[in-house]
Structure formats: C-alpha cells, structure tokens
Design a protein around this nucleic acid. Sequence first.
DNA 1: TATGAATGAGCCTTCATTCAT
DNA 2: TATGAATGAAGGCTCATTCAT
Lengths: 197, 197, 197, 197
Amino acid sequence: MANDNKKRTIEMKKDTVLKAAIRLFAEKNYEATTMAEIAREANVSFGSVSIYFGNKEELFMACVVLPLEEFTKSLLDFDPSPNSYREEIQTFILKHFELFSTQKEYLRLLVQVIGQYERFSEAFKVVNEHNEKLNNKVSQLIVNGQQANQLADGDAEKIAIAYVSLLFGLRLSYADDPSLENWNQFAEIAMRLFGPK
Amino acid sequence: MANDNKKRTIEMKKDTVLKAAIRLFAEKNYEATTMAEIAREANVSFGSVSIYFGNKEELFMACVVLPLEEFTKSLLDFDPSPNSYREEIQTFILKHFELFSTQKEYLRLLVQVIGQYERFSEAFKVVNEHNEKLNNKVSQLIVNGQQANQLADGDAEKIAIAYVSLLFGLRLSYADDPSLENWNQFAEIAMRLFGPK
Amino acid sequence: MANDNKKRTIEMKKDTVLKAAIRLFAEKNYEATTMAEIAREANVSFGSVSIYFGNKEELFMACVVLPLEEFTKSLLDFDPSPNSYREEIQTFILKHFELFSTQKEYLRLLVQVIGQYERFSEAFKVVNEHNEKLNNKVSQLIVNGQQANQLADGDAEKIAIAYVSLLFGLRLSYADDPSLENWNQFAEIAMRLFGPK
Amino acid sequence: MANDNKKRTIEMKKDTVLKAAIRLFAEKNYEATTMAEIAREANVSFGSVSIYFGNKEELFMACVVLPLEEFTKSLLDFDPSPNSYREEIQTFILKHFELFSTQKEYLRLLVQVIGQYERFSEAFKVVNEHNEKLNNKVSQLIVNGQQANQLADGDAEKIAIAYVSLLFGLRLSYADDPSLENWNQFAEIAMRLFGPK
DNA sequence: TATGAATGAGCCTTCATTCAT
DNA sequence: TATGAATGAAGGCTCATTCAT
C-alpha cells in the first residue's frame, strides 16, 4: 500500500514533468527550452527529471510519443463503413476540430517534429506511422463511400492527405487559438474536400 | 569600376551567406544552427557574417524578410476580377503549387516563424502582414465570383484562410518533397474548397 | 549538519573566488582579467564562478562592495571629540597607514573604480558614499578641534579631502609596496595637513 | 613645398589621432577602447592608425610618452634656489594645480599607468623616470630651503613624495573636475606639507 | 530516491591585425 | 599612402549532464 502510494506519487510527478515539458517544448521549441526550466515548472529538481526520463532528447521523445497513442485513438474514432458517409464525415470533422482546437500545445510539438523531420527523425518515424494510420482509414472510408455512390469521385488517398494537411494548416494559421466555434465555421469548408453531393 | 566590382562581389557574398543561412535555419531551426556552420557553408569566415548581417538574430530576420517581397508578389499574381473565376482560381492554384513545391526551404522557415510566433514575434509580424494581403486578395476574388454567380456560396474569408492553410499544411505533410507533379494532383482537390460548379 | 558543512564549504569557496578576483582585478584591471583566469586561480571551474556571482560585472561589483563595509569601519574607528585632538589624529593616521599598506590589492581596485568612475558608475556610487562618511567624520573632528582651540584654522572639509587624497595618492605612488615602516615615515608629514600646533 | 604641406597634414592627422586616443584611453581605459573607435573619433580609417602608430600597444605608449616631455617641463618650471622659498613653493603649487586641473585626461592616463604598473611596465618606466625628476627637484628645493633656514625640518624626499602624491590624489578624488578655483582652495593646505613658517 | 553543486563543451560575439586594391 | 574587407583568436556565458551526499 505504502509502496503503491509512493508509486502513484512518482507516476504523478512524472506526469507533471511531462506536461510541463510538452508545454515548454511546444511554446519555445526544443533547444530554447532548458532542463532547468522544465524542472522548475514542474516543481522538481532537475536531477529528478533525468532520473525519470533520461536525457533531454529522451524526454522530448517521451513528450511526443506518450500522448500519441491516445491522440491517434481519438482521431481514428469513426466508422469507415457507415450507413451515411457524409454524416460520418461531418461527425468526425467536428470531432477532429475539437481535438485540434483543444490540444494546441501538443500539436505545436507535432508541427515541430514534422517540420524538422531530419533533426527529430526518430520521433518523426513514430508520428508518421500514426499519421499514416489516419490517412489510411480516411482513405478507406472515402473509397467505401465512393463505391456506395455516396461520395464524389477523386483520388481517395490524396483527398485524405489534403484533409489532414488542412487540419494541420489551420492549426498553424490559427496560432492565436480561436475558440472551437471559430473552428467549426471551417467544418462546412473542410467537408467540401470530400466532394459535392 | 574597381569599386563597383568590389561592391558586386560583396553583394554576391552576402547572398551566398543568406542562401546558406536559409537552408540551414530551415532544415535545423534557429538555435540548432550555428553561425560557424553558416559561415563554413558559405565559404566565409564567421567574422564576415557578422559584418554582413550583424548578429544571429538579425541574420535570421533577414532570411525571413528579404525573400518575402518577391515571394508575396508571386502569390498575389492573379486577377481578382477575371472573366472566368474558376479558371483564374485553377490557374493560381497551379502557380501557388509550383511556388510551394519549389521554395521548400524558405517555406520551412516560414512554418517555423508561424509555429513559434512568440519567439519570432518581429519576423512573425512581417510575415503575417504579407499573409493577410494574400488572404484579402483571395477573399476579394471569392466575393466577386459569388456576386458574378460563378462561385458557390460560403464565407469568403474562411475559404481563403482554408485555402492558404491547405497550402501550408501540404508543405508540412509533404516534407519529403514530392515532385511538382505530385503537388498538381492536389490541384483538383484544392479547387473543391471554392465550392462546386 | 552535513548540510551545514556543505554551506560552509560553499561559502569558503566563494571567498576563495572573491579573493582571487580581487587580486587579479586589482593587478590587471577589469577587462584584462578573464573569468577563466579567476576560476583557475581559485581552483574552481569557471562554471562555478558564474553560479556563485552571476556574471563578470556582478563579480566585480562584489569584489568592490563586499569588503567595503569592514574597510570603512576600520577607517572610521576614531573619536571625533577626543580629549587631545592632535593625539587622536596621530593615532588614526597610523591606523590608516597600516590599513593602506596592508590592503594593497583592495585599494588598487578602489583606485580603478574612482579613476574610471563613468565605467564603474554603480560601484563608484557605493564607494563614494563610504568615502563621504570618512570625509565627514574627519571634517567633524577638525571642526571640533578648531573650536577646542587645539587645531589651527582652515577649511575643515578641504583639509579632510586633502588628507584622504594624500592617502590614496601615496597608495598610488607607492605601488611597489614599501613596508609599513616606510609608510610611517609619512605620518609626521600627513599630520602637517591639519596645521601647526 | 607640396611635399612639405603633405608632411604637415600627416603630422596634423597623427596629432588628431593621438588626441582622440588619449581622450578615449583616459576615459574608458586601455582594453575598453577599440582601435576602430579611435579611428572614427579622429576621422581616419583604422588602417591609417596602424600606419601612423603601429599596433595598439605602441599607440598607447605614444599617448603616454609623447606629451610627457612637455608636461614634465611645466612641472619642473621653478627655481630650486630662489630668494624666497615659501614664495617659490606657493607659486609652483598654483602652477601645478593649474596643470592638474587642466590636463584631466592625460592625468587619468598616467593614473592608469601607475595604478597598473605591471601591465604597462614599459610606459611606467618612462613615467617613473620623469616623476623622479620632479621628486628630486622638489627635494632639492626643500633641502636648500632648510639650509637657508626658510623651511622647517623634515625628510625632504618624503615631503616631496607626499606633495606629488597629494597632487595625484586630488586629481583622483576630484574626478568630477571642479574648477581651478576649487583646486586653489587646496593651495594653502598643500603648502602645509612643507612645514610651518 | 532526490537533490543541486560542479563541470566544461560549445556558442555568439568582439576586435586587433593583415593585406589586396 | 589610405582604405576597409576579411580573418580568426579569445572571451563571456549558457546549459546538459554527472555524481557525491
């Protein structure tokens, strides 16, 4: 029990450090963020940060990879063979927009990794795999929708890529973090990528 | 005459330095790039870099701002009141795609500035002004096209933003630099943002 | 306890650094002295010097200000209303001479600060305040002595300034550090500034 | 003739450079002053400075040594065997005060050289020789005056040193450059060093 | 397990000096 | 003779990392 409590405390501390690191890495980028700053922000000694996550690079990797599973899960939470394709698309667009408007910080991190993929090659590899899962599933849905005659023709993979690019592009352009409502005004426009009725 | 030659040589050297700096800043980001590296890449001593551009920050600023004028000029090179709106859009999409697939390095720089807008606030301000010019002109064309009954309804400004976001998003996603042909396959999809016929 | 020991050790190290810095700054002046040199002299890494005292300027400031309190205390250790004024003066002259012949290094530092007062404006301000305390107290003693008919007439403040100037002037001229005995031979001459019996 | 004019121009330029160098070296000290600054101040290219005076150290040396001859000549302009010794002393004190209050900048240079005699050993050697000439001549005058029963007893050499020290000490204390009148108020006090009537 | 003192590699920058014109 | 472009040594400083406590 006592041991359990301790463990839980350590996990909590690790989480605090990770949150702080994500926030700082996102806002200031990798090299402009110091280990000392992260430690201070998380109310831990910087010795502890090393114990928890190893060195700076490993910590960055953890910041990128650890939240990725859940993040991707949210992105992939749609049915690639629904009854109504247009409704399904409409729905996941809204879901994605909510995610992208909420997870500002984590997404800035991803933008960094993608934008500097040579420097962050390892992290990029992981991110890319997840990204492709999303591309594939969206592609699949489009193909299915086209075969069901509910979606217009067009290269399904390219459309999927364009859709994800739009998400990231909006995240980039909308750096000053407008409300979810603002994002939602783009829903109808994003829908257009999938073709007219 | 001799003096003139000297001046020309200096301008050429400055340009070499600028090019090298853009390349390195783009690929590795601001802090990961050292002045010594830039100097080496440009075959100058690092003392010369200081003479040409002052300090590192000013050099970065120059990298962002100096090419911006011409870059924006290319982006704005379309007629906001053409005879055929869909044709005009088609045309500038191809032009923009060519620019975005050609200017890979400079665009990575812009992505950095936009993505870390707090850190690069001054550069961001300049970039943003130019960006808004593009948004405005595209918006204007959409409004005109809608009034001419050639374009579908929809919030013109949002469509413009979405379009520019898509450009940057593709640039981000397509980090591994596919050929212009690959880009062009997105032209039809980008066109969709402006609504169906 | 262990913690206490650690603190003591750090304080001792800081003191070693301070001593080394005073010696080097005094001998070679501010810019000619490098942080690395000070660190080497004090058997610490130059990183530690930064941890202890911040940057070079702050270290210099510490070198000037920290010993000042005790230094001034020694200088001010006389009675401005004694029974015998001439004896009191005689006594403090000897005390001051001892201080000035002993504290060669610290005084060279003060000479630098005073001589380059624009460059060291902050340090100079502090030094000057202390200096004026001395001037004032000596002035006061002279005035008292004149009123008691034990000292010759004359502008008390100017005499005080002349006396302190003589101290610093001798310190400057006697750079090659003669023994205290040599200094003491000036005692009778310094006494003359306060007027004949 | 033309050649002569050119020579004169060069001499004038050299003089401008020297004046500028003295001013800057005095105010900011040796290392804090850059060759470029001196050149700018003198309206010459810094290449010329090198041509005129060699390297920085040689320039500094020139700043110290070249004006020294005339400076010392002024200081030594008194009669060591006058009719009235007290009058002669009175007179040269006023002359010296005028010199010391006028030549603020050059004297700050001398204070630097004397204060950092190890660093400026060569310049110091020259300065010291001149200084000793002054000491000797003043000593001589005192000895003569004592033999003539016009001056009080006391170690003549020490008195001379004290007198010169007072001059430099006042120059140091009076950094904020009071007027000559202020200096003259110290004349009576300086006189006291030579003993009562 | 946690801390933070200590280290020193590596960066940016300044500036004396050289040398081609 | 005069200029100033170019060089690179050297300094201050930051910060990731190690390790004794």
